[in-house]
Amino acid sequence: MSDGWHLYLLRCRDGSLYAGIATNVERRFRQHATGKGAKYTRSHPPECVLGSRAYPDRGSALRAECALKRQPKARKLAWLLAEADAAT
């Protein structure tokens, strides 16, 4: 996943969720996992990437990230399910 911008959702070891954007989700996950990512993931180490969604540009990915971060956990998980349904 290195073409364009992606909004991704991580599950952290404590069960919390973290949303972010990147052009390469796998590389960004490795950065989070080694403590070189966001401040939040330094204190809440990530367990896995739950999912991601592609966006045409950085601006639209940032707007989607902002909207997703304002949602409760259940809505974030529903966002993942909606993406999975769209892919099938």
Rank of each mutant, 00 (worst) to 15 (best):
R30E: 11
Y40T: 09
E65Y: 03
L7F: 06
A67I: 14
L7T: 00
R75W: 13
Y55C: 09
H6F: 14
A33D: 01
T88S: 08
A86V: 09
L10Y: 00
K73P: 11
R63V: 15
R28C: 01
A67V: 15
L50A: 07
L62E: 07
M1K: 11
Q71H: 14
D3N: 14
L68W: 10
G20T: 00
T34Q: 14
R58V: 05
R53K: 15
A87K: 11
R58S: 08
T88Q: 07
L10W: 00
E83G: 13
H32K: 05
T41Q: 00
P56S: 12
Y55P: 07
L10K: 01
L7D: 01
G4K: 05
Y8E: 00
A54R: 14
C48Q: 12
F29S: 02
L10M: 04
I21G: 01
L77N: 04
P56N: 07
L80T: 03
H44N: 15
W79R: 10
A78H: 11
K76W: 06
R63Y: 09
W79K: 03
G4Q: 06
A87L: 12
L50F: 06
Y18N: 07
D57Y: 05
S60E: 09
H6I: 02
T34Y: 02
T34W: 01
W5F: 13
A82P: 04
R53D: 06
R28Q: 09
R63S: 12
D57S: 08
K69P: 01
Q71F: 11
K36T: 02
A86T: 12
L68E: 05
W5C: 06
P46Y: 01
K76M: 15
C48V: 08
K73G: 07
Y55T: 10
A33L: 11
A86W: 04
L81A: 11
K39G: 08
E83M: 12
A61V: 05
G37N: 05
S43W: 08
A84L: 13
A87W: 10
A84N: 07
E26L: 13
A19D: 05
A61T: 04
G59Y: 04
L50G: 04
T34S: 15
E47F: 07
S52D: 07
S60P: 04
A64H: 06
L7E: 00
H32G: 00
T34H: 10
E26I: 08
D3Y: 11
A84R: 10
A67C: 13
C48R: 15
G59L: 07
A78I: 06
A87P: 01
G20W: 01
A87I: 13
V49P: 02
Y40I: 05
G59H: 08
K76L: 14
K76I: 09
L17F: 08
R70S: 15
G20V: 00
K36V: 03
R42T: 00
G59D: 08
P46N: 03
A84Q: 10
Q71S: 15
D3A: 14
A54I: 11
